[in-house]
Amino acid sequence: MLNLVWLFLILGGIAVAACNGRIDLVTETIFSAANDGVRVCLELIGLMTLWMGMLEVARQAGLIRLLARLVRPLTVLLFPDIPPQHPAMGSIIMNICANILGLGNAATPFGLKAMQELQKLNLSPDTASNAMCTFLALNTSCIVLIPATIIAVRVATGSANATEVVAPTIFATGFSMVFVMVADIIWRTYLQGRRRKPPRC
């Protein structure tokens, strides 16, 4: 699936550029984009190191386990494959909280930590487990209470009421979160059994 999307983006882009006479621009763009990718990563290194370090402190203090225990009912419903009170749940909750508060740069390290914990439970390491799919769906559809960046943009452009978009954003993200979680549960319980691959942890 991702193979196809990737191929489509690059080949489609080059084909259209050829028709538009923008082929020189493509060459230039490819190199600068590759550099951009590394630059974003370099910026991530500091953040990742900082937050993974903080998370280790929180883990050794028992905070991650406490969080995992608090959301046990949620674990049973959404992540039936994760043992209750497993530290993976703690990292997942931290990631979701960061998303809810609009703290994008803290969300990624927490999310990557959660993926590492989930990978420890994964029986076939090169294939996504059900729990991973649920986590990613939850992450991308997650309800947002404070769309901090966009409020800043609206303030900067002189909006009369910069925060009027908060309520609609909460509604739209809440809707998509419920919708996707229901879709995931339906997939897990009804559709998966009929596919070729046996359900995995």
Binding site: W6, L9, I10, G12, G13, I14, A15, V16, A17, N20, R22, L25, V26, T29, I30, S32, A33, A34, D36, G37, V38, V40, C41
Partner: peptide, 17 residues
């Protein structure tokens, strides 16, 4: 992973696709 994604997306955008 980031480089792969960035290149594909930029090409798609700059080309006018």
């Amino acid at each position: 992973y980031l480089v792969a994604m960035f290149v594909a997306i930029k090409v798609f955008r700059v080309s006018g696709a």
